[in-house]
Lab assay of single mutants.
Amino acid sequence: DFYKILGVPRSASIKDIKKAYRKLALQLHPDRNPDDPQAQEKFQDLGAAYEVLSDSEKRKQYD
């Protein structure tokens, strides 16, 4: 669930989604977690979630 990945409720605004994405991107970035083999995958999932939820048309289709 993309909302769960970003840690935001379904009613979150685009601004809230962007804020959550930036915070998590810093935490999950593979360069900051060189010892975590799943860091790259988590970071890619985060990017996919943000791409869908930050675009109003894609978000409507997802919901």
Rank of each mutant, 00 (worst) to 15 (best):
P37Y: 07
Q44L: 10
P30I: 02
D1P: 00
L24M: 09
H29I: 06
Y3S: 03
I17H: 04
K18V: 09
L53P: 01
A49F: 02
D36M: 07
N33T: 05
I5A: 08
K15G: 15
S11W: 08
D35R: 11
K18S: 09
S13Q: 10
G47N: 08
Y62A: 02
G47D: 07
K60I: 15
K4V: 05
N33K: 05
I14P: 10
K18I: 10
L53A: 04
V8S: 01
K60A: 09
L6I: 07
Q61W: 07
P34T: 11
L26K: 15
R59P: 03
P37K: 13
P37Q: 10
L24Y: 06
K58F: 06
L46K: 00
Q38A: 13
F2D: 00
D35P: 06
D36A: 05
N33R: 12
P34F: 09
K23N: 08
K58D: 01
P30N: 04
H29N: 08
P37W: 06
E41Q: 10
E41K: 14
Y21R: 04
K15I: 13
V52G: 02
Q38F: 13
P37M: 09
S56G: 14
N33Y: 04
H29Q: 11
L6Q: 00
L26M: 13
L26C: 06
R10I: 08
V8T: 03
A12K: 01
L24Q: 11
P9L: 09
A48R: 14
P34G: 13
A25P: 00
D45S: 11
K42C: 06
L6N: 01
V52Q: 05
D35W: 07
R10L: 08
S13F: 02
K60T: 14
K60M: 11
F2M: 07
D36N: 15
H29A: 10
D55A: 05
K15R: 14
F43R: 05
A39G: 06
S56K: 11
Y50M: 08
S13L: 04
K23Y: 09
K19I: 04
K18E: 15
L26Q: 10
K15W: 10
A25C: 05
R59G: 00
V52P: 02
P37D: 07
D31P: 05
D63N: 05
S11L: 05
S56W: 14
K19P: 01
E41G: 11
